[in-house]
């Protein structure tokens, strides 16, 4: 008996975005990263072009994170006070495709650093590494709206990915990114309807759809991964069936979320039955990342070098 061909036919696809700009395009990057382009659901390449490989962006903070467990901070102990060196280590030693600079230190409750400080940090990282940059605000709308335009201006022409904008606060950063030639991250808190709405709002300001990356906020393994998964899966299916307002590549914040889990960060003596934390933590992060990859993710923000290596290996084997 002939086996029927059950492959689905897709009429749409995920937008393709190139991040970073080389000298001939007005920036100073030596490498650019192209994401998106999928015309099939992940790992089903017999249904269509699987698009570009997902990439790993490693997090670098402008101030040393206070809540990181020792397992996580150890590989970065020598560079945590210097974001530029930290970024360099991530790229040169750990193979980060991109750097995600998280400007936690500008938050009014976490140091309240000034826009000038943030600009200095951005410039030092741009000088230290040649990969494209994601610049992520502190998620305090008022402070972000004060600092991010200056940061954007400082990185003008570099075609960074700037975030985040939400339904309630999107005008300032959207206008800034439009003026300075950056791409933008639209955020919705695990809500596909709001996700679509933010994309519409941003596009109504004439921001091109093919410069938007979507962020649904991320749930780690055991902490809501399945909610993120099902929304991202639905977003991908909407993109493949031609919904232009849902056709953007997707970014996940895996590192930060996975390392908040007690399963990742608890000391060995607290829970000896869970196995050594040196393995457990990176595994928690890697499993969260690999699981979410199946739903359709284009950029994964990650932290631990061991988890990064495992996830990159997995991506390279599957794509």
């Amino acid at each position: 008996m002939e086996i029927p061909n059950v492959a689905d036919k897709w009429t749409g696809g995920v937008n393709e975005i190139t991040l970073g700009a080389t000298r001939d395009k007005g920036g100073t990057r030596e490498k650019t990263v192209t994401i998106g382009g999928a015309k099939s659901i992940p790992f089903m390449d017999f249904e269509g072009n699987p698009g570009h490989k997902p990439v790993v962006a490693m997090d670098v903070y402008d101030v040393p994170p206070e809540d990181w467990p020792e397992t996580l901070s150890k590989p970065f102990a020598d560079v945590m006070n210097d974001p530029a060196k930290w970024a360099k280590k991530c790229v040169e030693q750990y193979g980060a495709d991109m750097i995600c600079l998280k400007l936690d230190g500008i938050h009014p409750d976490k140091g309240d650093k000034s826009a000038e400080d943030a600009v200095k940090t951005v410039k030092s990282i741009l000088a230290a590494v040649s990969v494209p940059l994601i610049i992520w605000g502190c998620e305090h709308d008022e402070k972000d709206n004060e600092v991010m335009p200056k940061v954007s201006q400082a990185a003008k022409g570099e075609n960074c990915l700037m975030g985040i904008v939400s339904q309630n606060s999107y005008k300032t950063l959207t206008a800034t990114c439009l003026a300075d030639g950056h791409c933008i991250i639209t955020m919705a808190p695990v809500d596909i309807n709001i996700g679509k709405q933010v994309n519409i709002l941003v596009s109504e300001m004439d921001f091109p759809l093919n410069r938007i990356v979507m962020f649904q906020s991320t749930g780690a393994l055991g902490y809501g991964l399945e909610y993120t998964y099902s929304i991202q899966e639905r977003e991908r299916l909407a993109a493949l069936t031609g919904d232009r307002m849902m056709s953007m590549p997707v970014i996940c914040d895996v590192g930060h979320e996975a390392w908040r889990a007690k399963e990742a960060k608890s000391d060995d003596n607290e829970v000896p039955q869970w196995g050594p934390r040196e393995e457990r933590g990176p595994l928690w992060e890697a499993i969260t990342a690999v699981s979410l990859l199946q739903s359709g993710v284009d950029i994964i923000r990650m932290n631990h070098p061991k988890a990064v290596a495992a996830v990159k290996k997995c991506i390279n084997r599957l794509y």
Binding site: I192, N193, I194, G195, K196, Q197, I200, L201, S203, E204, R234, E235, A238, D243, R244, M245, M246
Partner: peptide, 14 residues
């Protein structure tokens, strides 16, 4: 058949 959003009518007319 489509994902709902508050501005679904506007989005479709674009």
């Amino acid at each position: 058949q489509h994902v709902y959003s508050d501005s679904y009518l506007t989005a479709c007319r674009k």
